[in-house]
């Protein structure tokens, strides 16, 4: 018999959904705003830095808003008690998933640095960092979900 999803598992799925939404929305935003990417623009470190930094507050705001909505929805439609504490199992799962996501991000970081060592354009470094950042978030959520579901 399949076990129903626990609160933590649902929360992870919401987080994963958020990450994917942000990834799609951010890509679309950059593409529509800077449709006419000039070669000069793509290699302007100031522009790339701004585009990267802009992502951080947007991600935080979207994640917080979605989590608030999720908590409200769970309280309204489900009789499940929302855990108010983070216990040792939650902390262990968090640590294990962070370790996996760090490896993913570090791989992306090395690829980014490698692209510069090979003389590629700064835009390649920017892309490698952005993609590895998103991948690290997605992998972290998937790892957490598996640990909660299969055991740790």
């Amino acid at each position: 018999m399949k076990e129903p999803l626990t609160f933590q598992e649902k929360q992870i799925l919401v987080s994963l959904f958020n990450t994917l939404i942000i990834l799609v929305a951010y890509s679309y935003y950059l593409h529509s705003k800077y449709a006419a990417f000039t070669d000069q623009m793509l290699n302007d470190l100031q522009f790339l830095g701004k585009a990267f930094l802009m992502l951080i507050p947007i991600t935080i705001v979207v994640q917080v808003v979605f989590l608030i909505i999720f908590h409200i929805v769970v309280r309204i439609i489900s009789s499940e008690k929302i855990p108010e504490i983070t216990d040792e199992r939650d902390k262990l799962i968090e640590l294990k998933s962070i370790r996996i996501s760090h490896w993913v991000f570090i791989s992306g970081f090395f690829m980014a640095m490698g692209s510069q060592a090979l003389g590629m354009k700064p835009f390649v470094m920017f892309l490698a960092l952005i993609i590895s950042g998103f991948l690290a978030g997605i992998v972290s959520d998937i790892a957490k979900f598996i640990y909660y579901r299969k055991g740790v």
Binding site: T6, P83, D90
Partner: peptide, 8 residues
């Protein structure tokens, strides 16, 4: 002092 999910 843990969650129900941990007991499960």
């Amino acid at each position: 002092g843990v969650t129900r999910q941990t007991i499960v």
